[in-house]
Simulated scan of single mutants.
Amino acid sequence: MTQTLTAPARGFERAEFEQRTARLQDAMAAQRIDAVFFCTEPEFRYFSGFKSQFWESPTRPWFLVVPASGRPIAVVPQIGAAGFAETWIDDVRSWPSPRPEDDGVSLLADTLSEVSRTHRRIGAMLGPETHLRMPAANFAALCDRLAQHEMTDASLIVRQLRSVKSAAEIAKIRFACEVTAAGFDYLRSHLRTGMTEREACKAMHLEMLRLGADACPYLISASGPGGYDNIIMGPTDRRLEDGDVLIIDTGANFDGYFSDFDRNYAFGEVGADTHQAYEAVYASTEAGLRVAAPGVTTGEVWQAMWSVLEKAGALGNDVGRMGHGLGMQLTEWPSNVPGGDVVLQSGMILTLEPGMTFAPGRMMVHEENIVITESGCEMLHRRAWPQMPVIG
Rank of each mutant, 00 (worst) to 15 (best):
R198E: 05
N253C: 08
A359F: 12
R382M: 01
A181T: 06
V115I: 06
R162E: 11
A137V: 13
N138I: 00
W302T: 02
T6F: 12
P235L: 09
D318V: 12
A140Y: 12
T87I: 13
R238E: 10
S259M: 12
H119W: 14
D103R: 08
P360T: 03
Q148G: 15
E197Q: 15
G347Y: 05
S52G: 02
F254R: 09
D26R: 15
G123C: 04
N317P: 00
A74V: 04
P225C: 10
A85G: 08
A304N: 09
E378Y: 01
Y278L: 06
S94G: 04
T373D: 09
P98R: 05
T6R: 04
K202D: 14
V337I: 15
I232T: 02
S335V: 05
L246A: 03
S259T: 07
V342N: 04
F47M: 11
Y278S: 05
N336P: 01
V270G: 03
G49H: 03
L315H: 09
D237R: 13
L380P: 00
R99I: 03
S284W: 14
A215V: 00
P360K: 14
T250V: 07
T130C: 14
N138C: 12
F37Y: 15
Q160K: 14
A314V: 11
D237V: 01
N138K: 02
V291Y: 02
E86Q: 13
P135K: 08
D214F: 03
G104D: 06
R192C: 08
F37P: 02
G234E: 07
V76Q: 08
W302M: 02
A167R: 09
A147E: 11
P77E: 13
L289T: 06
R382E: 10
L107S: 07
L246Y: 10
G316F: 11
